[in-house]
Design a protein around this nucleic acid. Sequence first.
DNA 1: CTCATGATACTCT
DNA 2: GAGTATCATGAGT
Length: 201
Amino acid sequence: MDHPWLRAPAAHVAETARTLLGWEVAANGVRIRLTEVEAYAGTGVDPASHAHRGPTPRTRVMFGPAGYAYTYFVFGMHWCLNVVCGGEGEAAAVLLRAGEVVDGLDLARKRRGEVPDRDLARGPARLVVALGVDATANGTCVFDGTGPLLLTPSTRPVAPAAVSAGPRVGVAAAHEVPWRFWITGDPTVSPYRRHVPRRRT
DNA sequence: CTCATGATACTCT
DNA sequence: GAGTATCATGAGT
C-alpha cells in the first residue's frame, strides 16, 4: 500500500490530521465521512499524548508504522479510535473524533439507539460504537483491508478555508495547542468541552 | 442552548 | 492510588 499520507513524518502530524477531514472510514457495514479530528504527537513534545512519556504496553502501536489503528479504553467504559501517523519508532496519531454517517444508516441507528441522525457519530466514543469497533481493531491496518477498518481518501474534498482549528477536547495538558480540526459549521462536529479534573469521593 | 455531575475500569506511578 | 483524548442525564438560562 502506498499513499502520500503514509509517508508524512510524525513531526507534521497536525497538518496530516487536517488532511483527513472529508475522508471516509468504513467498518462492519457502516461508512462515515470524517468531520472532526485531533492530532497527538510523540515522546517529549506533546504532554497530552499517551506517548509523551515513551512507549508502554498500551501505546506500543503508536510507535509502529503509519496506517495502523490504535484503539484505547477510557473512563472505564468508552473506546476511542486513532490512526497511527509517522515512521516506525516515531509516535504520533490522529484521533477520529466525529463524522457523518454516509452509508449503513440502519446499522448505525441500531447500534446507537434512539438519537438524531447527526448524533450517530458525534464524538469519538459514539463514532466507535456506530462503526461497531472494539479492542480487536487495535494494531490492524486501516489501508489494506486486512483488518475490520478501511480508510479511504475524500470523495468530496474539503477546502482549506472550510476548516477550523482549536484546542483539543477534554485534555488535561497542552490545552493551548490548536490541534483539533473540524469542518466549520458542520452539524456532526462535537461540542467543545474543557477538561475537568475528577476526584474520588 | 450551557453547565455540572456521576458511572466506570483500566493504565501507569 | 490517582488520573483519565467520554457520555448521558438533569437542572438552569
